[in-house]
């Protein structure tokens, strides 16, 4: 599969299926690469995949979720390579099978999370959320289906104003929703009960990488002593340990276009890093975790 074709395929998924997160889209693209690959050895296939991952990352989208998803997928494959005895064709088939199992698990993840998290939504609660997160949306929807009455505040979330869309979707479902300015986070903080945000990536410290503004919200929430909940699938766990905002890799913060063209000092970062001390709980498909448990899970996964 050619580099451009990979990008095309990936972008087609992200554009057409708004319900699919970038990580899953990347994995589906990689599956396609395996299917169409002409290579004859596992080694060659692996190089192909690595090239494909590189191409996907250059698709002008933030790479947080893609990185972790791809790493997990590669891990899956290297593990396969070790315990197969059959021909290359069998090996390839096994990879695809396992990839499908993997994707199925990811699909189920959001349901599990919304089940866990919707218990925290009770009648009369006021929730603040940031930007647009599919898993938060589904959780709110899940709770609404259970006839819980609650109110949601959504930030507009500049620069892409994805909060507007979130607000519209919530109103369509029938959940009372207020759109607030990004700069009004401090203003609404005193009247809300808790915060629910999604995450683009969960890092090894137990902190999260998410749409710019999440950190502001978390700091504000800590000061006002409101719980800060993160809803995220476990395939977003990344082997990365940022020490502070500066230490976050540039490919996370800026899209490829920006990285190539502008002086980074003047560019607006797309994501920020929220340290674990600001996070109350993480709701994932492997359970409700404290931030310190994330690192334990990652060690178990990768070491």
């Amino acid at each position: 599969m050619e580099g451009e074709k990979v990008q095309e395929y990936f972008q087609k998924i992200t554009n057409e299926e708004t319900d699919v997160s970038a990580g899953v889209a990347a994995i589906r693209t990689l599956m396609e690469v395996i299917k169409l690959s002409q290579s004859e050895t596992v080694q060659e296939l692996e190089t192909n995949l690595k090239d494909a991952i590189h191409n996907i990352k250059n698709c002008n989208v933030p790479v947080a979720a893609i990185t972790s998803g791809c790493e997990l997928f590669l891990r899956f494959i290297t593990l396969v390579g070790m315990d197969t005895v059959g021909s290359f064709r069998d090996c390839k088939q096994l990879m695809l099978d396992r990839g499908n199992i993997c994707l199925k698990k990811f699909d189920e993840a959001r349901g599990k999370i919304s089940k866990l998290a919707s218990k925290f939504l009770i009648d009369g609660s006021k929730v603040l959320t940031h930007s647009r997160s599919r898993v938060v949306l589904q959780t709110l929807y899940h709770a609404h289906k259970q006839n819980k009455r609650f109110e949601v505040f959504v930030t507009t979330s500049a620069p892409d104003n994805s909060g507007r869309q979130m607000c519209k979707e919530l109103q369509n479902i029938g959940i009372p929703c207020t759109l607030i300015l990004d700069s009004a986070i401090g203003y609404v903080m005193e009247q809300i009960d808790f915060i629910m945000v999604g995450a683009e990536g969960v890092v090894e410290s137990g902190g999260i990488v998410n749409k710019i503004g999440s950190y502001t919200m978390a700091v504000c929430a800590k000061e006002m002593k409101k719980p800060f909940y993160v809803l995220t699938e476990s395939f977003k766990f990344t082997r990365l340990f940022p020490l502070n905002q500066q230490d976050l890799p540039a490919e996370y913060k800026y899209t490829t276009k920006v990285r190539e063209s502008v002086d980074l000092k003047n560019a607006h970062p797309y994501v920020d890093y929220t340290p674990p001390s600001y996070i109350t709980l993480l709701f994932t498909d492997i359970g409700i975790l404290t931030p310190s448990a994330v690192s334990d899970e990652l060690i178990n996964l990768y070491l």
């Binding site: 410290s205 082997r239 340990f241 674990p276 334990d296 060690i299 178990n300 990768y302």
Partner: peptide, 25 residues
């Protein structure tokens, strides 16, 4: 542990609280 951002070990950069996991491994 709350005064330490991270521990750098040969395995990975970890938060302090992951020591028991490493010991177990």
């Amino acid at each position: 542990p709350d005064l330490v951002t991270a521990v750098v070990t040969e395995l990975a950069i970890l938060p302090c609280t992951s020591v028991p996991v490493v010991l177990r491994i």
